[in-house]
């Protein structure tokens, strides 16, 4: 995997997160998070399990009610209640850890559902685009297959295509390779790397450290609902400034016996 970080200059701010607070009942899960995500930037969220990474992504996609602060996408404030929320979500693509394709639809039907129904685009044009995208991830021959006929890696690539076909401004990835067999991880990560190279704005949660290093423009290290460290990948992986980050990175190291 090549280093992409040097080649990019940050664009305009796409997502602004200001003093975000999120609670489940009485427990604070995200505490006063502030974060700007720029056009074309790849942000990788790292942190121990349960620190709030998924919750942060879900907040950005308006899947969670927030208890404080605000999230602004292209100047528009996200609000769970607003009637326009589904329109805002069309600008945000999300791929989850659990395979979330619709089991009663073929691959192609899965992909064109959003563009056809949510965006009301013409069928012919959408099918053409879907086929081009499938071609790019090497799955054109699977277009008429049902999800249960696909491997985990293939499902996740289709899920990525399904999100891309909506022309999102930003893509959110929540541990999309965590449930995959090791030999399928690469094919999915390669698709994400390609996307990054094409300039897609992305927020990625992953436990693949090599991949994080290769794809990230910026690493955000979360612990206990707080942004503990924020730096470029080079600095983060070679010279983390906090003990928590050092401990976390140590979990991925093995000492020679």
């Amino acid at each position: 995997m090549e280093e992409l970080s040097e080649m990019k200059t940050p664009g305009e701010t796409l997502v602004e997160i200001k003093n975000l607070n999120k609670k489940f009942d009485d427990t604070s899960v995200l505490k006063d998070i502030s974060l700007d995500i720029h056009q074309g930037e790849v942000v990788v969220l790292l942190g121990p399990s349960g620190c709030g990474k998924s919750t942060l992504l879900r907040c950005i996609n308006g899947l969670e009610k927030i208890q404080g602060g605000e999230i602004i996408l292209e100047g528009e404030k996200l609000n769970e209640q607003t009637k326009r929320m589904h329109l805002i979500r069309q600008k945000i693509g999300m791929v989850f850890q659990s395979y979330d394709l619709f089991p009663h639809m073929t691959v192609l039907e899965n992909i064109i559902l959003g563009p056809r129904k949510a965006e009301k685009r013409a069928k012919k044009e959408v099918v053409k685009e879907a086929e081009e995208l499938l071609q790019r991830v090497g799955l054109l021959d699977k277009k008429n297959a049902y999800p249960r006929q696909l491997s985990g890696g293939q499902k996740q690539r289709v899920a990525i295509v399904r999100a891309l076909c909506m022309h999102p401004k930003i893509m959110l990835f929540d541990e999309v390779t965590a449930a995959l067999d090791p030999e399928m991880v690469r094919e999915v990560l390669d698709v994400m790397l390609k996307l990054a190279k094409d300039g897609m704005t992305m927020v990625i949660v992953t436990h693949e450290m090599q991949f994080a290093k290769a794809v990230a423009d910026r690493i955000i290290f979360l612990d206990n609902g707080i942004i503990v460290e924020e730096s470029d990948p080079q600095t983060f992986f070679t010279n983390p400034s906090t003990d928590r980050a050092k401990q976390f990175l140590n979990l991925f190291e093995f000492d020679a016996i």
Binding site: L63, M94, F102, H104, R162
Partner: peptide, 30 residues
């Protein structure tokens, strides 16, 4: 129907009604 089916539909930008019509109800009927 698993929660993530509802959420995937939502995340695609479907309205609640569309989500029920195309994602949830067809699976429910089956």
């Amino acid at each position: 129907i698993p929660v993530h089916q509802y959420e995937s539909g939502k995340a695609l930008g479907l309205t609640t009604v569309q989500n029920y019509c195309y994602v949830i109800i067809p699976q429910t009927i089956r």
